[in-house]
């Protein structure tokens, strides 16, 4: 029982980060109908920016703030230089373009900061909490990550569903023509999607980096897990991304703990296939399934 609780808690903290990466993917998808492969590259790059600031100033919070700002700027740059021009192309072209951006970002990061893994400090203790004399598999930092995720999801939900910006973004995503006619500046809304996604991704990167390592390729695996979570969740759904992001983290932890690591990815694949068989448009997609 003890062990189960520990697997569960450890998986939950891991899942929170996957959830944030999945959220960033969903945000881009909602605004511009593109699966953004470069997301993990953006998060990695902004984490390096944050780490540089932490190294220079010693302030973790300042590092986070600058990383978020860098995320916004990077999102905007990619939107203007790559995605806006590429919208004329088809969806597979857009996917490939984001893939090209990912390769370029990883190479650029390796040029600037070197390829060796680096440590990202934590703002609070990274040492297991003792409950009734036992150390459990969750640290104050893990709690910090989970709380940060909850706050971020709440803010996003409010922004996207309760503000004019959010409503305009949804309108321009679902029907650009009608939105344009009703006075929404569609292209600005697309840019807003990329900016917000870049910021969310930056937070995810800064939060996950301290628990393992930061290197140009260290987030690659999150691309797979976050994409899986976003797809199962329905790509349009913030709730879906968060639920299945955390679910993926739990699943990986439990399977790794009770059997071994190589089964974890396999179980994830089987569940992905089953889920898509029964819910081809994702579990939390509210749009009507295709009629054919």
């Amino acid at each position: 029982m003890d062990t189960f609780v520990n697997f569960f808690l450890g998986g939950f903290a891991n899942g929170a980060v996957i959830a944030l990466m999945a959220l960033a993917l969903v945000l881009v998808w909602r605004s511009s109908r593109v699966v953004n492969f470069a997301q993990v590259g953006q998060a990695m790059f902004t984490s390096f920016v944050g780490l540089t600031v932490v190294d220079l100033t010693g302030s973790w919070i300042l590092g986070l703030v600058i990383a978020i700002a860098a995320g916004a700027v990077l999102g905007l740059i990619i939107h203007f230089l790559v995605m806006r021009p590429v919208r004329r192309a088809d969806s597979s072209g857009a996917i490939i373009a984001t893939f090209g951006v990912l390769i370029a970002l990883q190479a650029l990061a390796a040029m600037i900061w070197g390829g060796d893994p680096r440590a990202y400090p934590t703002p609070v203790s990274y040492s297991g909490i003792t409950v009734f004399g036992r150390v459990i598999a969750i640290t104050p930092y893990d709690i910090f990550v989970i709380v940060a995720m909850v706050i971020l999801v709440l803010i996003l939900t409010i922004v996207l569903t309760r503000t004019k910006l959010g409503l305009s973004m949804r309108a321009s995503a679902f029907n650009p023509e009608v939105a344009r006619l009703s006075g929404v500046r569609v292209s600005r809304m697309l840019a807003a999607g990329w900016i917000i996604a870049g910021m969310v991704g930056a937070v995810a990167g800064v939060l996950v980096a301290p628990t393992a390592t930061l290197s140009p390729n260290s987030f690659d695996i999150f691309l797979v897990f976050a994409f899986t979570a976003a797809v199962i969740g329905g790509l349009d759904s913030l709730v879906g991304a968060v639920t299945f992001g955390i679910g993926t983290g739990l699943l990986l932890s439990l399977v790794t703990g009770y059997s071994d690591a190589s089964n974890a990815a396999l179980v994830a694949l089987i569940l992905l296939a089953l889920n898509l068989w029964f819910k081809p448009e994702g579990a939390f997609n509210h749009h009507k399934a295709r009629s054919v």
Binding site: A137, D220, S262, A265
Partner: peptide, 19 residues
Amino acid sequence: QASYLPTQIAQGFGAQVTK
């Protein structure tokens, strides 16, 4: 016995250590 995949390094070894 515990094991890891090279790709898991980025996520930490919580489950393995717990086990």
